[in-house]
């Protein structure tokens, strides 16, 4: 294996990792504030992918242009999901919340199956087969580059929202101190619903972006749920920068595993990394230790 094979793999891994990071951000935001592990994570993202697919088929819309609408629709979906269903299980033990979300995941997968069928479906856009050639040997797919740029832009927007906006600060206040937030008059249930909505909107955007890179089918979802778990635990559950760092790490480790071993071994690598992180630094690379 020569240097350029490695460099190409790492570049591809980095760009894919940025998209993974965006998707994991959706999981991280929800867990960080509401303390719910969203077992329907990949499924909600696949909803976003199918939405982008429909928009492409009907209107010929580039998936990147579908992002605002996909995000808006899934925001509403997430908001109502939290305020009407998930808030009702907030007081139940972990395994009941897990079961509810797993049941929701099963429902989403099978609804998609009923509507779209089991076959993988891809889109074909004008730049699907184009690439940027940097120098002589470094070749980067155009669609992957655009996907990564979109992922970085949306992640930046989200980090900015949580850091600077009043609503963002209020949500962080709920995460830091539930009781305190209530005492100063924040409407916590509304902010929680807002958070779930934002998390789902991020997944909608991530789904649109991901459609540039892979084919979509309903059974894609559970794999992405697991992948997002791996990423946020490596990065630190609840840490937003951690999710991005974890995404890049996993993207690159997958790319390396694929060229050193075989492509089908790549997730074994990720799970191995996950076990190591859980044992050595259970709060994750960027997470704060909670005791």
């Amino acid at each position: 294996m020569d240097f350029w094979t490695l460099a190409n793999a790492l570049a591809t891994g980095l760009l894919t990792g940025l998209v993974y990071g965006l998707s994991a951000l959706g999981l991280s935001v929800i867990f960080g504030v509401i303390r719910i592990v969203n077992f329907a994570h990949g499924e909600i993202m696949v909803m976003g992918m199918f939405f982008a697919l429909i928009m492409f088929r009907w209107l010929g819309l580039d998936p990147l242009l579908s992002i605002p609408l996909a995000a808006a629709i899934l925001f509403v979906f997430g908001y109502f999901l939290q305020s009407t269903v998930i808030s009702r299980v907030a007081h139940l033990p972990d395994h009941m919340q897990f079961l509810l979300l797993a049941a929701l995941a099963v429902m989403i997968v099978n609804a998609c199956l009923l509507i779209f069928g089991p076959d993988p479906q891809a889109i074909n856009i004008s730049y699907s087969f184009d690439s940027f050639d940097i120098g002589e040997n470094l070749i980067i797919d155009k669609s992957r580059a655009y996907a990564a740029i979109a992922a970085v832009a949306i992640s930046g927007l989200l980090l900015g929202f949580f850091k600077y906006s009043r609503t963002g600060k209020a949500i962080r206040a709920c995460a830091d101190n539930y009781l305190g937030a209530q005492v100063v008059g924040l409407k916590v249930s509304h902010l929680y619903a807002l958070t779930f909505g934002i998390g789902a909107a991020v997944l909608g955007a991530a789904g649109c972006v991901l459609l540039l890179l892979i084919e979509v089918h309903p059974y894609l979802a559970p794999g992405y749920t697991l992948l997002a778990f791996v990423i946020v635990i490596i990065g630190g559950l609840g840490s937003m920068t951690g999710a991005l760092v974890g995404g890049i790490l996993i993207g690159m480790s997958e790319a390396l595993a694929a060229i050193i071993f075989q492509p089908s071994m790549k997730s074994a690598f990720s799970f191995g990394l996950l076990i190591l992180v859980l044992l050595l630094r259970p709060q994750g690379l960027m997470g704060k230790s909670v005791k």
Binding site: V106, M107, V109, N110, A111, C112, L113, L114, G117, P118, P218
Partner: peptide, 8 residues
């Protein structure tokens, strides 16, 4: 095709 209906 009703593949998903049962699990839904």
């Amino acid at each position: 095709k009703l593949n998903g209906l049962k699990l839904l």
